[in-house]
Design a protein around this nucleic acid. Structure first.
Lengths: 130, 130
DNA sequence: CTGGTTGCAAACTCTTTGCAATCCT
DNA sequence: AGGATTGCAAAGAGTTTGCAACCAG
């Protein structure tokens, strides 16, 4: 938590009760959440506030966008030492992580300068596929 | 074209002027297009018609959804023998293809039954990165 | 104090649907 | 003829913004 608060301070943002509450939710739920999910977990905070807060967090690199094979974007706390991707169950919605990435291979294959990438899977989890 | 019309016939759908026009657009533009893009290329057809038509095409496997790192879904003609992914330039919007995929590796790594996957990149193309 | 932050309401954008008229087969 | 398809209009759903009141430093 302190690490993230320091980032906010360093960039001139204030430490508010709302921000601490949302950060705690992200710390307690280390998996991709939608804005709706977050709002459900702290219904006392206005949706627009969460919307703007998460965008600040994305700008500061506190959270990152996870584009699962779903309509809405999910957000997850950033941890540079733990780069991973996900798989979501189309039946129960469970999200598991996959430690697999090919961004370095892609960098060699293309003349583009790659800045973002997404690698996500969807299917049926062990329980639901039975 | 005939191949796709046969799929439509086989599933009991009718061959209309609109459907042939949109299929021709997809054949002429073999790259991911948004509904808006398609509508721009045939402004005479109503947006709702394109919306419903593309969804039929997706159901029949005539086109597939490409979830680039953009808000809107793109659609591209399906070709089972040519599985590939994409990279989009964040500056000029150009979309290039990348012949790289790890869905088989992912299948070995997880207990899920994988049915969909996405692997997309974003960055600066050779021209824009200069 | 003072500017960043928040809640509320409303504007926007994109997606989806109902229905009557029209088009394939 | 008869059901699928289409255009039009409007409803939904999610995203984004303006503004005045409020709060952290």
């Amino acid at each position: 938590m302190e690490k993230y608060l320091n980032t906010l301070r360093a960039e001139g943002y204030k430490i508010t009760g709302n921000r601490k509450e949302v950060l705690q939710i992200l710390l307690d739920n280390r998996k991709p959440l939608t804005l709706k999910d977050i709002h459900r977990l702290c219904a006392n905070i206005d949706f627009a506030t969460i919307y703007r807060m998460i965008n600040v967090f994305v700008d500061l690199g506190i959270v990152y966008e996870v584009k699962l094979l779903e309509k809405q974007i999910h957000y997850e706390l950033m941890d540079a030492d733990d780069h991973h991707h996900h798989i979501i169950c189309k039946n129960c919605g469970k999200i598991a992580r996959i430690d697999l990435c090919v961004v370095n291979t892609a960098k060699k294959l293309t003349d583009f300068q790659i800045t973002n990438h997404t690698l996500e899977f969807k299917g049926l989890c062990p329980q639901c596929k039975k």
